[in-house]
Write a protein that binds this DNA or RNA. Structure first.
Lengths: 200, 200
DNA sequence: ATATAACGAAACGAGCCGTTTCGTTCAAGT
DNA sequence: ACTTGAACGAAACGGCTCGTTTCGTTATAT
């Protein structure tokens, strides 16, 4: 009868300090809810239930739903934003391919979609997303800085802007649920981006 | 005293038929709420209050919040997706410029952002958005079909895919709240897209 | 040894959800 | 001319989630 309770080993306070076990359980439950049910199912209440945590515990450390969402997001492993294959076209192919795979196979896609959606409603999420993207463009621009040093790309190319352009396409695919792109198809996309649309 | 009521001219039934005045008031209130408060403030309850309409009236004609949102969206005036200036580069500049202005100055931006955000949660919105985008790519692809006839763009360019690529950039700007792009800056973006990133 | 803070559970009032009931207005059918 | 029936706005419903408060318990920090 009471053995059930013992097996479930209820978490409790470990004194006047934060309990890492609760923290982990909450973040993991939050991620699972996002992956399984999307942002629509994501609420403090739902996370508390799933994590067997008290709502006050969550509100103490994550004052808003958005902050909890962003914490889940920042705990993810991210792909290498600036692969170095030696050629600009294969660099871009590698980057987009890695992004698509990360979003498609892991939990990254569902979480990132949710962050973008949240940013359409919550200014705090919008601000955090903007800061994160600026940093990523800066890092990823390295691809183009290297290529310019090799005289492989035109000198008027702005690394950060080029980065934004090439990632825009996969963003749109993420948001419209069309992440599954065959390698030949992706190569064609990269060809459009690298060689431009105009006849030579 | 009672003159106040008379001035507010309460709407009522016009018999066993839909009341266009109520329909208009509801759709207008819905749009205003989206523009002023975003998707977070958008609820049937809020729309009913603002439109001085009964909730059953709304639920009768728009069974879900998503359907009402999509109706607001479809009532918008849309920009010409396939301008014909005679050259591919100016066509694209015109198109992106029109889109940015439409989103930035009117109500279109707030409404479209909301549709995209809703699509991250509601499959019905996702489906509707996908269908709409496919249609727009088809229409807008005309830019590239014309340019190919002029031998202005490479023959391996896929009109619908090229359309998706060039609109992806402004999508991302819309979703990250950076719609204000100076003409020179936009011209630079178009240059990246049209001439590609690689040195000739 | 005492004060302090975190923990999970439970319950709170407030507000929104989608539905139902009500009295009304008026077109459509007889 | 009369009846039927549908649409209208208002109000109230039960059910749910929200963010907060209260409670008894646990264990660190002083």
């Amino acid at each position: 009868m009471t053995g059930k309770k013992a097996a479930e080993t209820r978490r409790t306070s470990i004194g006047a300090q934060r309990n890492p076990a609760s923290q982990d359980a909450i973040l993991q439950a939050a991620e699972e809810i996002l992956v399984e049910g999307g942002l629509g199912s994501f609420s403090i209440e739902a996370v508390a239930r799933r994590a067997h945590a008290g709502k006050p515990t969550i509100y103490r450390w994550w004052p808003t739903r958005t902050i909890l969402l962003l914490d889940v997001y920042h705990r993810q492993k991210f792909v290498d934003i600036a692969p170095d294959t030696g050629a600009i076209e294969t660099d871009i192919f590698q980057l987009l391919s890695d992004l698509l795979e990360f979003w498609n196979t892991g939990h990254g896609g569902a979480v990132f979609r949710s962050v973008i959606a949240e940013a359409q409603t919550d200014p705090a999420a919008s601000k955090a997303l903007a800061a994160y993207m600026a940093e990523r463009y800066q890092q990823g621009g390295e691809i183009f800085r290297r290529a310019k040093a090799r005289n492989e790309v035109a000198d008027w190319v702005v690394p950060e802007l080029a980065m934004e352009i090439i990632t825009s396409f996969v963003w749109k695919r993420l948001l419209t649920d069309r992440l599954e792109i065959a390698p030949e198809q992706l190569r064609l996309v990269v060809r459009h981006l690298v060689h431009g649309l105009k006849a030579q």
